[in-house]
Design a protein around this nucleic acid. Structure first.
Lengths: 331, 331
DNA sequence: CTGAAAGCGCTAACAC
DNA sequence: GTGTTAGCGCTTTCAG
């Protein structure tokens, strides 16, 4: 147990009020008093008790990041950026995994560890819009990804329809005609995959090309590998995967089974995870501006905390196409 | 602001004591009283205030995971396992990134956010043994990786010397003779890379083969790529990278520059991250038992909390060789 | 089995 | 400029 305010005060011969002033950098302390108190603080190794501050002030300095799985590269990269940038708001990040399970998501939505956090940044997979709007907890919430919660909640996302259409057009422009999509997730309420499918279909329809959609259960490499195995018997000349992980699984199977990528088959992904840049061949992908997502989420949370009554915002973050060797030869 | 104990008590016509008993599942409450109180709790949506509990009880239910970067696949996978298993100890995980910076590590060592956490699980990179043993904070600490802190601290690790020797022997047994190692980090105090180098050298010495060691600054794919680029001009027939990330970078450069892997060049890594399993070709690696690492770290922390005076332990976790296509043809 | 009350460490309103 | 003190919400000792 370390020293507390009162002990510091006694030892420095001042009141707790003065010590509190020194600790919190409050101005009205005589310089010599301040110095004396500071010396005692250092001597005793005094550190303010966060629990007491939290109880008193109502702010814990903690923000929960609630996501399906931290081990997934996309979420890992995002978590890293959020953790780094949280400091600027005097926040520390707390991680909660849901495995994409709706019940677990609902539970976390309504009080992560009973009111410990100042706010939540959440990437839901299994929640319906009504789950999201019907929550009882009052901690500010910012959603990652497009959520369709009737504009009632703050959220941060790229424009998935446009992004998917951009990538599909790139495949068409480089001569592909039989373009399959891997990554539909009809069992999920989450709209992200649906939006990407929409962009994919639009671009194909504009070019009068047929769509071919392979659903998956999860977005792991193994799911991409399984989907690709299924596709090997068909005559597709390109696959557009709705995540880089799916794409890396698909790429692995395609290469292992002797397909030449990109000569015989183009493979593209979504997310721009680091693995994709060093894949063989390097993976073409949609690159969301992840630092911008992290900043937007934190700022949005801070704004909401400062102004609870403000209307909810939908923040659209930029993305760009990252064209690499998995879809283009030479050039 | 949600309801507190007193409001529940008033509304249920009992004392706070009784409500507290109901909430904490304490036995001595008349069944009908319990039921009535529970009804009010549900009605008011009462949730215990964590700050007050922490202040009163001294436990926050929070454990800090302090690591170089959460976005690195190895740490991401570990964090996921820790987050999942933390629940079994009624803990929530809080993440702090250090970027491997010694000053930041030292700062976190001595009071992550001023005594908010019940304990720390830390993977230090830049800290010296004396930094580690000379800390002032009293929160229990468990180190990940071999730390050489004179046996004064709890730590969890695989046997890196044996593991590296195992892998090197595998390369020798499959006919490699000019085996380079990528991943020395002489600028770091951290002993992990040094231990792996030791195992590598031992195995080579036993077979009367020469060592060739390439140092790196970090363990990222880009560093592995740079090291491999350097090695392309030489005549090595195998590279053993001290992390899978390094290996994936090396593999990328080797394949991109036309080397046939494994025919011309074998590539092996360390950590068994998921990317490696789906690389082209799939990456041979040392697979530490990550779930066991997570469990050992949490259990060790819990034990230390329960028994602060117990002698520090060094927990050695199993590993195994994962032989894949990047080092062996056919078989 | 239930009630009253102390006190965890801090901040801030109120004195001086 | 500095001191005193109430009270944040909870657990737990002590009475009853």
């Amino acid at each position: 147990m370390s020293a507390n305010l009162r002990q510091v005060a006694e030892r420095a011969g001042v009141s707790v009020r003065t010590v509190s002033n020194v600790v919190s950098g409050f101005a009205l302390v005589a310089p010599e008093t301040r110095e004396r108190v500071q010396r005692v603080i250092d001597e005793l190794g005094y550190k303010p008790n966060a629990a007491a501050r939290h109880l008193r002030g109502g702010r814990s300095g903690l923000v929960a990041l609630v996501l399906p799985e931290i081990a997934s590269p996309y979420f890992g990269e995002l978590a890293g950026l959020l953790a780094d940038r949280a400091g600027a708001h005097a926040w520390t990040l707390l991680v909660q995994q849901t495995g994409g399970d709706a019940a677990r998501e609902r539970e976390l939505l309504d009080g992560v560890r009973s009111q410990t956090v100042d706010g939540l940044i959440m990437s839901p997979w299994g929640l319906s819009p009504s789950d999201l709007t019907r929550r009882t907890d009052s901690a500010p919430l910012v959603l990652l990804g497009e959520q369709d919660a009737d504009g009632l909640l703050d959220h941060v996302a790229i424009d998935n329809v446009v992004a998917a259409a951009d990538l599909t057009r790139h495949l068409i422009q480089t001569g592909r005609r039989r373009i399959a999509a891997i990554g539909l997730q009809s069992h999920l309420v989450n709209g992200t995959a649906a939006r990407r499918a929409e962009g994919y279909r639009q671009a194909l329809a504009d070019a009068n090309l047929p769509a071919r959609e392979i659903p998956v259960r999860r977005l792991h490499r193994a799911d991409g590998a399984a989907a690709m195995t299924e596709l090997l018997t068909s005559d597709v000349d390109a696959v557009f995967c709705f995540s880089d992980q799916l794409a890396l699984g698909a790429l692995h199977v395609a290469v292992a089974s002797g397909r030449r990528v990109p000569a015989d088959l183009a493979v593209a992904g979504f997310d721009d995870i680091e693995d994709g840049r060093f894949a063989n061949p390097a993976l073409t992908t949609v690159a969301p501006d992840k630092p911008a997502i992290a900043d937007a989420a934190l700022t949005c949370l801070a704004d909401r905390l400062a102004n609870p009554g403000a209307p909810p915002r939908r923040l659209v973050v930029p993305h760009r196409l990252e064209i690499r060797a998995s879809t283009t030869t030479g050039s």
